[in-house]
Design a protein around this nucleic acid. Structure first.
Length: 215
DNA sequence: ACCGCCCTTCCGTTACATCA
DNA sequence: CTGATGTAACGGAAGGGCGG
């Protein structure tokens, strides 16, 4: 929190450094340092010259990187003993080895985060697909239910009609799937979901439908 | 318990190299 | 030449260990 806030301030200062010529800026810094945060600016290193004047190795050789990678693979942390040993093996400054490990840990962390993100995204996508499939199944079942309810309605209406007209269609099979006798009370006490049998036992509509469909 | 010093790690950034 | 990308290096904050 405080770090990022200071960094924002530093960003502003860095921006200032781009807006003003280097010489002007370098003279501005000490003045600002008195009132606010001092900002040390790294020197540009044109022509491979380090700040001190010596030649600066900008890129590590393949052999150096390979050995560093090998060491990083076995242990991400770098104790000072190992750092010194590695540095002398590679002909590098111990500080360079420390910086390399530091940057390598940062890269490793980023890569791990990317992998975790990718894994989570795959899981998320799979859940979304399953959700869609379940939703379409719910829709299908609702349609089936609606059709079944319409059938029940038709059948109960036909039952009422056949009471006066003795239609020839009231065959044996129709008897089997007609709604059970509702007694002398008409449809007034008729519940949408419950049918009463002649024995005054009741079963739910869906169960009744299922029973008749497979009888 | 407190303080100052040193060392290390992490984070954000900068400078530079390399490549398309 | 230029913008994107990778990486070595830096600066600062924070935390732990240790002696005074």
């Amino acid at each position: 929190m405080t770090t990022s806030m200071t960094n924002r301030v530093e960003d502003d200062l860095a921006l200032i450094s781009q807006l003003y010529p280097a010489g002007v800026y370098s003279q501005m810094v000490p003045q600002q340092a008195e009132s606010s945060k001092p900002r040390r600016r790294r020197k540009k290193n044109k022509g491979g010259e380090a700040g001190g004047g010596g030649l600066k190795k900008r890129k590590l050789s393949t052999e150096q990187v390979n050995l560093l990678e090998l060491n990083f693979g076995s242990e991400h942390k770098l104790e000072s003993e190992r750092k010194d040993r590695l540095a002398s093996e590679l002909g590098l400054d111990p500080r360079q080895v420390a910086v390399w490990f530091q940057n390598r840990r940062a890269r490793w962390k980023n890569k791990k985060l990317e992998e975790e993100y990718s894994t989570l995204k795959k899981a998320h996508d799979a859940v979304i697909v399953e959700k869609c499939s379940l939703e379409s199944e719910v829709l299908k079942l609702k349609e089936q239910l609606s059709e079944a309810e319409k059938d029940i309605q038709r059948l109960s209406e036909r039952r009422v009609d056949s009471g006066s007209s003795n239609s020839p269609s009231s065959s044996l099979s129709m008897e089997a799937i007609d709604p059970p006798f509702l007694g002398g009370y008409g449809l007034e006490g008729y519940d949408d979901d419950v049918f009463y049998t002649q024995e005054n036992n009741y079963i739910h509509g869906i169960e009744w439908m299922t029973m008749n469909l497979y009888m």
